[in-house]
Every structure is written in structure tokens, then in C-alpha cells.
Nucleic acid binder design. Structure first.
Length: 637
RNA sequence: GCCGAUGUAGCUCAGUGGUAGAGCAGCUGAUUCGUAAUCAGCAGGUCGUGGGUUCAAGUCCCACUAUCGGCUCCA
């Protein structure tokens, strides 16, 4: 009998009969492992337990303890079971795709009538019924023609399209579980028994393949875990995340509002404005240090400018227009054309370069109504923009400087980010060869700095490729914040020049970049990041002074004045309420420090300090308290 | 923009065709209290907007509007 040699996770080897499956291997190791096995990882690739092992392979048997890989298999199978349930409950349904995703799974269906929320519990109980049968999932391999015929006969037009789009060399497979057969690469569970601890979460319309020109399917999202406790923990996390939602906190902490009179046009309230001003102050200080010069360009500019910049041709559907004295004008959706005009307004020498013009520029963009989202996606926002004019040979160094600045900013706020490189979109301006050069330049910087990034083909700006920095919100949605965009087009369009060493005119290169991105979105991310409990230096109200009785009122006024003189943002709560009530309110408003002043403090001249996180800290001299606060502010804490 | 859901007092929410409610917030008064809610009283609403059905609409129907979830994490 011929055998194969398998290397296990612990680097030991095992000899087993040829054509053995991963399941056989698991059984040969231990009965318990075979029982708990979910899938196998063969040479780094997750496969079915029933799949045949190759002659030589490194194999790891995955169990419920093996995290993301095992969960993905569970979730993918759960999606199939859900599809089977839908097939039984809603005959005539056609099937789109049903993958496992980060926190669960979904399946897209074409149904005659969209699902109603009441349908979810029905589907859920049908799933439980089906899963309890412990139906095996059987993998079949088919030729392209067979697969096409099979799904065409069932009128599964989406599956047919998927098969047609599969690469030539790929093995086409489908999985059978009970009466349901789905085109699927797998891997899957051996049977449906582990489909126990799940919940269907939401319904949504979703375009077939995300394309608005294609039919809209009905998507059901769900999640599943191996253990009930994990599911409970996940549901609890979702609840907790809701409490961090910047829209909820923005209301509760009275930071901003969005009103019917201006969808997507946020109103800053005094406290939100305080936070924003601090962000801007910090930004200005850092930019002066980094060699930037601040400018401000007009909100509304003539059509001819936008035609020259290409926005009139490439960005029109996102722009707002107006007429002045019968001439066409546009409200700026970007700050770049204005900055180009500032540069062009004078002659420049190579000795001046790079010229770093920065601008807190208010731009307006017509975002889809369905895409608006609190402060995170709005139609009017302030970009902390900059346009850096330089010689081509300065690109790498300058982009490196910008990346360092992004990192400095995000480190101050303790934000984690993910980097993406976006390349030429379909609707692009300019020569492809020039694009290639620009794309390569950005890629080089990332590689030299050893930054991990994801390639995002076709997602660049219409004038150039970009490096984006993404931040996740409280429920894991990713938002682009900082971005660095390389631009060879605008200098051309605006005929920008500098005089080189040789006395001749040369064409500069422009880098567009934002650090916060949009101040609105960045604030949204900060609110969620801190769950509304801003660190002292950002807190709209840093200290509330609370006299316990009217006898301490005078002292409280005095303390308030001293704090104000020391540039601390302070409020005095002189209402005739009990101290517990005042503390509760300040606590709910997430004020970092409270000063409780009663007879003892009046007597000693000290203040009793209470912190948002740590409670009562006892009493201390005012000077000590101020020193403590100032040190904390300086350290951005 | 598209699919679905939702819109009642400043906020959170009850109200299933028959006289618009609660808690909190607000205002007034009392209370002067030691680390997360003192008590009492008062006031507050074209039920998102417009139209329709009905003897009668917050409630049913239509349109609009705003908000919420989602619209490739690719078999």
C-alpha cells in the first residue's frame, strides 16, 4: 500500500495511506481531534476535511479554537444553510453570493417581494430546523459546461454569470447540502451540526456585484460563533459600540447637530466648536513647525477655472453651481484649483521649492442622500488641505515627510490606521505613462519606509494616484481620513513653472494632502475613539467647580477665576442641588475634572479633586492642581 | 440615487380609527446637603410635510422630506 508523508503543526511527520482525507488524518491523531475538527489547513490553504491530501503536505487540523480560519468556514456554511432556508420558505428565489465576512456572513437573494423584518425570525427557525438534521455538505467537481448547464437549467442567472467570469484554470465546484446546491469554492463544514449559535441581524438592498446599474438583490446579514458565549459577547459589543456612535454622543454632549433644513450640512454647537478650534490650533502650530504657509482661497469661483482644472468634465455630478451676473460659477468641491492660482500668481525659483501651501478649506460636495452619515459623510466639510509644489526629484523625500506628519498626528490621538494605495481610475485625466510614473513613485516611498499597505486598483483621484489612511469607527466601518495624492496634471493644466538652475522654465509636481482629512469626519472618529470622554487637552469643558453649599460659593467663584486665568476651560455649577447630582451631571457630560468645594475647603483654601475616571482624589493646594492639569494638557492627555 | 425600516414634547419612548400620554430635561418654589439623581407644583405637541379615504385619522392610503441599516469583505 502506498503512503503519503504529512508534516504536522508541531513539525512531526506522519505516514498515512495515499488518498487519505484530512478527516482520516485527524482520526489517526486522536478521536477527540476528529470530533472537534472543523476544517484543515493544507500548505497554508484552508480546505474541507473530506478533501484528499496531496502526497507531501504540511497539514494543520483546525478546530473551533483556531480563530478566524475556523470561523470563516463556519460562517460560510451558515450562509448556505440560510440560503437553503430561504429556498424552502420562499420558492422561486434566485441566489446571488453568500460569503463569510469579517463579523459574520450574508447572502444575496433575488426575491419577488423584498423580505420583511418579520421574515428574519421565520428564516432563523427554519435554519435551526435544517441545521439540526446534521446534513452533510458534499463537494462535487464539475466541468465548466456541466456547471453552466446545471445552473442554467435552474434559471440561476447569477450563478451562470459567476461561472462565465471564473478564470480559465480554476476548478469549478459546487456543494450539496440537503436539497440545496450552490456553486461554491468552499471550504465547508463536514455537516451542518455546528450551525447552532447564530443570529440574523439585518436586511438590506444590495446591487448585484455592487453595481448600481445591475438588479438590486435582498441581502440578509447574520453572524454565528462556535459558542453561545461568543455570540452573546458579540451582541454585547454591538450594543456597546452603539453607545460610542458619534451621532448619539454628539447629541448627548451637545457638540453638533444635523437638521432637516440642511441635510449633510452640520451645525457646530459651542462645545463642538471648542473641540474643532483646538484641533485647528494644534494643526496650525504643527504646520508652521513643518514649514507650511497658510492660505485661504474663495468658496465660489468662475466656471473657466473648473474647466481648466478638469473638475467641470470629471467631477460635475458632485458639484454645486450658481450664477453671478449671468456668468456660471461653482462652489468649490476641492481646494486645489485655488491653490494653483496662488502659486501661479508669482514667479518661482527652484531655490524656493518645495513650497508648502496649506489651507483649512471649506468644500461642498453633493454626496448621495443615502450615503450621508452624521459628521462622517457630509456635503460641506473643511479639509485640512495642503498643496506642495516641488521638483520631481523631491517627490520621495517630500511624500516621506508627509507620511511622517500623518503618523505624528495619529499618534497624538492614539488612532490606528490602515494604508491603501489607489491607482488610476477609469475616468482619469492625462497620459497613462505619466500615471505609471506617479504610481511607481508612491509605491517606492511605501516600500522604502516598509509600510504595509493594500492595493486599491482604480480608486485614485481623476488627476493622480494616492495613498490613503483609513480609520475604523466604533462598529468597524472604515473611513478614509488622511490622503496623499500625487499630481502631474494640474501643473500642466495651469501651466505652472519654476525657474531652474539652468535659467529655464520647468514644470513642478504637486502633492495634494490632508492629515485629518475632513475636520468633520476626523471629529466623528475622535468622538467614537474616546467614546466622548475627550482627553483633557481636547475636552470642551475641562473642569467643573462645584460648591456644596452657598457658604462655599464665594470660594468657588475665586477658584473659577484662578482657573480661567490659567487658560483652563472651566464652568461653575452654583445651582442649589446636592453634590451627588452635580457630580452625576458632570460625569455624564464626561468632564475630566471636578472640584468639590465645601466648608473644609473654604477653611483650608485647598480644592478637593475628583476625576472622571478615578473618582475622589482628595484635597490639594490649587497650585498643585493647576500644575497637574497643565502638565497633562502639554502631554496631549 | 437605489432597497428596506423609522419620524409623537428639548431628549428617550408609550399610544392598533373615537377627547394626545410617561420619564428625564425646562420653569417656579421649598431644601444648603461631602463625591453618579432632594421634594412639590407649573408649563410644554398643526403627532415630519402635503394630499386623500372616513361621520371621525397620530393610527388607513398616496406623494414628498429627513433619519437609520445596507449597496462585492467578490463562487
Amino acid at each position: 500500500m502506498s503512503t503519503i508523508i504529512i508534516t504536522l503543526k508541531d513539525n512531526t511527520t506522519k505516514e498515512i495511506p495515499s488518498h487519505s482525507t484530512a478527516m482520516t488524518l485527524a482520526e489517526s491523531i486522536s478521536r477527540r481531534l476528529a470530533k472537534e475538527a472543523i476544517a484543515a489547513k493544507v500548505n497554508g490553504k484552508v480546505v474541507d476535511l473530506m478533501s484528499e491530501l496531496p502526497p507531501r503536505a504540511t497539514v494543520e487540523i483546525l478546530t473551533a479554537e483556531d480563530g478566524a480560519d475556523a470561523l470563516e468556514v463556519l460562517r460560510h456554511t451558515a450562509a448556505h444553510v440560510m440560503a437553503e432556508a430561504v429556498m424552502e420558505l420562499f420558492p422561486g428565489t434566485k441566489f446571488g453570493i453568500g460569503p463569510a465576512i469579517k463579523d459574520g456572513f450574508y447572502y444575496d437573494f433575488a426575491v419577488k417581494e423584498p423580505f420583511k423584518p418579520e421574515d428574519l425570525p421565520l428564516i432563523e427557525s427554519k435554519m435551526r430546523e435544517l441545521a439540526a438534521k446534521k446534513t452533510p455538505l458534499v463537494r462535487h467537481v464539475a466541468s465548466r459546461a456541466e456547471a453552466l448547464a446545471f445552473f442554467a437549467e435552474r434559471d440561476e442567472e447569477f450563478k451562470v454569470e459567476l461561472i462565465n467570469d471564473l478564470p480559465e484554470d480554476v476548478q469549478i465546484s459546487y456543494y450539496e447540502s440537503g436539497s440545496f446546491v450552490d456553486l461554491c469554492a468552499g471550504p465547508h463544514l463536514v455537516d451542518t451540526a455546528p450551525i447552532k449559535h447564530f443570529k440574523l441581524l439585518s436586511l438590506a438592498g444590495a446591487y448585484w456585484r455592487g453595481d448600481e446599474k445591475r438588479p438590486m438583490l435582498q441581502r440578509i446579514y447574520g453572524t454565528i460563533f462556535f459558542k453561545q458565549a461568543d455570540l452573546d459577547a458579540h451582541m454585547h459589543r454591538l450594543e456597546e459600540a452603539k453607545k460610542r456612535d458619534h451621532r448619539k454622543l454628539g447629541k448627548e454632549l451637545d457638540l453638533f447637530s444635523v437638521q432637516d433644513e440642511g441635510p449633510g450640512f452640520p451645525f457646530y454647537h459651542p462645545k463642538g466648536m471648542t473641540v474643532r478650534n483646538i484641533l485647528e490650533d494644534f494643526w496650525r502650530k504643527e504646520h508652521r513647525k513643518a514649514g507650511y504657509q497658510e492660505i485661504k482661497t474663495p468658496l465660489i469661483l468662475n466656471r473657466s477655472l473648473w474647466e481648466r482644472s478638469g473638475h467641470w468634465q470629471h467631477y460635475r455630478e458632485n458639484m454645486y453651481f450658481t450664477k453671478i451676473d449671468e456668468f456660471d460659477y461653482a462652489v468649490k468641491p476641492m481646494n486645489c484649483p485655488g491653490a494653483m492660482l496662488v502659486y501661479r500668481n508669482a514667479m518661482h525659483s527652484y531655490k524656493e521649492l518645495p513650497i508648502r501651501l496649506c489651507e483649512l478649506g471649506l468644500v461642498h460636495r453633493h454626496e448621495l442622500s443615502g450615503a450621508l452619515h452624521g459628521m462622517a459623510r457630509v456635503r460641506a466639510f473643511t479639509q485640512d488641505d495642503s498643496h506642495i509644489f516641488m521638483m520631481p526629484e523631491q517627490i520621495e523625500a517630500e511624500v516621506g515627510r508627509v507620511i511622517a506628519l500623518v503618523d505624528k498626528f495619529y499618534t497624538v490621538f492614539g488612532l490606528k490606521y490602515r494604508v491603501e494605495l489607489s491607482t488610476r481610475p477609469e475616468k482619469a485625466m492625462g497620459d497613462i505613462a505619466v500615471w505609471r510614473v506617479a504610481e511607481a513613485a508612491l509605491e517606492n516611498v511605501l516600500k522604502h519606509r516598509e509600510i504595509n499597505y493594500k492595493l486599491n486598483p482604480g480608486d485614485g483621484a481623476f488627476y493622480g494616484p494616492k495613498i490613503d489612511f483609513h480609520i475604523e469607527d466604533s462598529i468597524g466601518r472604515s473611513w478614509q481620513c488622511a490622503t496623499i495624492q500625487l499630481d502631474f496634471q494640474m501643473p500642466e493644466k495651469f501651466d505652472l513653472t519654476y525657474i531652474g538652475e539652468d535659467g529655464q522654465r520647468h514644470r513642478p509636481v504637486v502633492v495634494h494632502r490632508v492629515l485629518y482629512g475632513a475636520i468633520e469626519r476626523f471629529m466623528a472618529m475622535l468622538i467614537e475613539h474616546y467614546a466622548g470622554a475627550f482627553p483633557l487637552w481636547l475636552a470642551p469643558v475641562q473642569v467643573v467647580v462645584m460648591p456644596i453649599t452657598d457658604r462655599a460659593r464665594g470660594f468657588a467663584e475665586d477658584v473659577r477665576e484662578q482657573l480661567e486665568a490659567a487658560d483652563i476651560r472651566v464652568e461653575l455649577d452654583g445651582r442649589s442641588e446636592k453634590i451627588g447630582f452635580k457630580i452625576r451631571e458632570a460625569q455624564m457630560q464626561k468632564v475630566p475634572y471636578m472640584l468639590v468645594l465645601g466648608d473644609k475647603e473654604v477653611e483650608s483654601g485647598e480644592v478637593s479633586l475628583r476625576t472622571r475616571e478615578g473618582g475622589d482624589q482628595g484635597s490639594m493646594p490649587i497650585a498643585d492642581m493647576l500644575a497637574k492639569l497643565n502638565a497633562q494638557v502639554k502631554a496631549f492627555k
